[in-house]
Design a protein around this nucleic acid. Structure first.
Lengths: 229, 229
DNA sequence: CCAAAAGTGTTCTCCATACACCCATGC
DNA sequence: GCATGGGTGTATGGAGAACACTTTTGG
């Protein structure tokens, strides 16, 4: 029955690319490795998959253990299996990407495990393993998917202004968007709900706060609605 | 160094969903298993990943060994890792999907290994493991991707008529397309090349044969062109 | 009163859609 | 000559893009 020891097997790991939005910057969370190989160098949070968990569960566990994050948007990205991607031995890694509401708890995401730090996407330090490729793949996916699925809301606080929403898209897509056209379009979709509340603590006219109406979105999708920026 | 035997590891496999187009039908290639578990039942071609090959290479090898197919379009689909997906033990599978020019060599794709048969998508027999989920995932991906990447040509012969091309999209997307609008749009993209040759052996007016101009497509993509049906 | 961002409409262009008839060929 | 698919144009409506000024608020 058990061919467990009959044939050698690659080790199976998960790695997570965690994106957060900090004002006008897209950021990625990296950890400084406290173990060989590449001790002291920067890498993606990740680790080996256990026998009693799916890769999704492993990714969530690593996220929790290494960065303290929980209940975040998490999606499988791609599986990387190059023979030389880990200098120790053959390791196949199922990569995930996560989207985090960074605005709330800011850059407090270090834990006992290792040093975890948010880096601007454009200022990431040299990474070990094939993690540069994984980050690039994740960023490409994010840019593509944010246009046709309402996942961008995961990067914002629950309540947000239209300007915040627009700025999120401008940041992720790295291109300017026309304010009036953007508002016309996003409001006409009917997936935003006015909270009735207003922005506060700003030194200018307060903006209306909106919320993503997920239920309505799902209802509309069933009727053929297709989100698109 | 080797923690090969320090921790138990899931087995790592690949599975392939192979799509082909036969006149107006989208087909999938399945094999009848000649080994337990599920001996005699239908499943996707696939097998375990060896230590000296990437998952891409494993998928291509299995394709070759089990179906005789080579040099086909192959893309990673998703990694399935449910704990109970294989009754023997823990097996994680990296799934792929392939697109095949079925028109040329028709249904001759059986080999020495096992019985390999093309089934209409709508007439697939009961599958074992989690293969129904994998097939569904692959079909969703195909329907989505065929709309914004020129992968549909992989299902047609090198030279094809506009009607064949249109019928391919109608079959994959399972919806009718207006002939005049389709021709206008696809020709205006400038990615098709007239071969100068004509269809032959048909009992009606012969149609012009076109070819997908891949080089031109890639040049145009670099300049910002975006394919869309 | 000044700085800073909120909020708002119109015009134009282009593309998606809807739609029907004649043409060429093999049998 | 007839059956079969090949090949073609136009009119309409709707959506995306471009574009600038007034309003509100806090300091």
């Amino acid at each position: 029955m058990s061919f467990q020891y009959e044939f050698p097997r690659p080790a199976l790991a998960v790695d997570c690319v965690i994106f957060g939005l900090d004002e006008g910057d897209l950021k990625v969370m990296l950890i400084r490795r406290d173990l060989p190989p590449f001790e002291g160098r920067w890498a993606l949070p990740g680790g080996f998959v256990r026998m009693d968990e799916t890769t999704d569960e492993a990714a969530r566990r690593e996220l929790r253990e290494e960065t303290g994050l929980d209940h975040v948007f998490l999606e499988q990205l791609y599986t990387f299996s190059d023979l030389q991607r880990d200098p120790r031995e053959r390791v196949v890694s199922v990569a995930y990407y996560a989207l985090v509401r960074l605005t709330n708890f800011k850059v407090h995401a270090t834990t006992d495990a290792a040093e975890a730090v948010w880096f601007k996407m454009c200022e990431t330090p040299p990474l070990c393993f094939d993690h540069p490729l994984i980050v690039e793949t994740a960023y490409d996916r994010l840019k593509a998917k944010v246009c046709y699925q309402p996942i961008g809301f995961e990067l914002l606080p629950k309540n947000f202004t239209l300007t915040q929403l627009q700025k999120m898209y401008e940041t992720v897509l790295a291109r300017p968007i026309d304010k009036r056209n953007f508002r016309k379009k996003i409001l006409s979709m009917g997936i935003l709900q006015e909270t009735g509340e207003m922005q506060s603590g700003v030194a200018h006219r307060a903006a209306r706060l909106y919320r993503f109406n997920e239920k309505k979105y799902h209802t509309m999708v069933k009727k053929g609605f297709h989100f698109e920026i």
